[in-house]
């Protein structure tokens, strides 16, 4: 039964990829990318990698679609024809695929209990992490403690992505927020017929003035607090179930972005200012790095949480709690900064 599910999901995955490659409408491509992420998240679930699946669903399907769409508002929504035939690229891809298949020939079988990945480091993670690190979710133990330094690296990667975007795009002309009123429909008929061609329709969609969307606003008001609450749950429940700082930050950010989309980017910016976000992003990295430094001052190695408290397990618990908080704050701030940066740019001035 499980192999049937796998086969169906994988074939959907292939179809989606081919469709993404073929399609020239970027809007559709982004939607398909979201579907691709959802399918791979489902595949991860069938492989019992729920943490990865959760991240993939939150990041791939959720926030990256929003960010891509808001980036799309700055450019054309139709891909240009490439000036040359992409045969060399095709050749490279085919060769890479062939080599990959060749490389899997001597791989241990998937799920084989005797394969090296199950018999070497994993043994200690599974057997000893409950009394060495503490959290029932072993993934959290590995990510936050055994390999906590990699996670610090990834946090800085996210930070870098945010400041790179602001450094490159943030300081050109700002968009003046003019409220577009809805035109009566008969006047726009001819426009609508073209709209699928040049894709202008989309740009207006994303900056919908919420004033006329009573239903959206009410539902938004109902759900945004719940989304934020759920983000906090994911943040603090990561020790016990799937979740943690990355997913929580992304979900929290999507709550804020939803607010900005339904009400107005400018209103959202007054609530959560870009300057405050910048400081939050910095604070996130500092919390993480700071925990490491404090460990050093207390006599341990960098990120050795054991020394944070009299009892090593309590120390581990405190350390993991703090660094997850740092990750969550950083990811949240960077995601919203990215959205602001795209939303603030005037169309066509890239």
């Amino acid at each position: 039964m499980e192999s049937v599910v796998d086969i169906v999901l994988l074939s959907f995955l292939c179809i989606t990829v081919v469709a993404i490659v073929y399609i020239r409408k970027l809007f559709c491509a982004i939607m398909l990318l979201g579907i691709f992420s959802l399918l791979s998240a489902s595949l991860f679930v069938t492989m019992d990698a729920v943490d990865v699946a959760f991240t993939e669903a939150a990041v791939g399907t959720g926030i990256s679609s929003i960010l891509l769409l808001s980036a799309l508002a700055l450019t054309h929504t139709r891909e240009q024809r490439p000036p040359h035939q992409p045969y060399i690229a095709l050749l490279v891809v085919v060769v890479t695929g062939a080599v990959l298949i060749y490389g899997t020939m001597d791989l241990p079988r998937f799920g084989d209990p005797n394969s090296p990945i199950h018999r070497h480091v994993a043994v200690r993670y599974i057997a000893d992490s409950p009394h060495e690190v503490g959290p029932p979710n072993i993934v959290t133990s590995v990510l936050a403690s055994y390999r906590g330094y990699d996670t610090l690296g990834e946090t800085v990667v996210i930070f870098t992505a945010g400041i790179a975007l602001v450094g490159l795009l943030g300081f050109r002309r700002r968009q003046e927020f003019k409220v577009r009123l809805y035109q009566p429909m008969d006047k726009k008929t001819s426009y609508a017929e073209n709209s699928t061609e040049d894709g202008d329709e989309f740009e207006d969609n994303i900056k919908l003035p919420g004033a006329n969307h009573m239903v959206l606003r009410i539902v938004g008001k109902m759900f945004i607090p719940l989304i934020l609450l759920f983000a906090l749950y994911v943040q603090f429940h990561g020790d016990y179930g799937p979740g943690g700082g990355f997913q929580a930050g992304v979900i929290f950010a999507s709550g804020i972005i939803l607010y900005a989309l339904i009400f107005d980017v400018e209103t959202a910016m007054r609530v959560i200012t870009p300057k405050g976000l910048r400081l939050l992003a910095v604070a996130g990295v500092f919390i993480y790095g700071g925990v490491g430094l404090v460990c050093m001052f207390l006599g341990g190695n960098f990120l050795d949480y054991n020394v944070l408290s009299a009892h090593p397990l309590h120390g581990q618990h405190l350390g993991i709690f703090l660094i997850e908080l740092g990750v969550g704050i950083n990811v949240f701030a960077i995601m919203v900064i990215m959205f602001y940066t795209f939303a603030n740019r005037k169309r066509g001035s890239v």
Partner: peptide, 22 residues
């Protein structure tokens, strides 16, 4: 004994510090 880690985290943590004051 902490020299190897200091090598990397000094620039790593100074990087966010750069944008604090703008």
């Amino acid at each position: 004994s902490h020299l190897p880690i200091l090598q990397v985290i000094i620039p790593l943590l100074a990087a966010p510090l750069c944008i604090v004051f703008n």
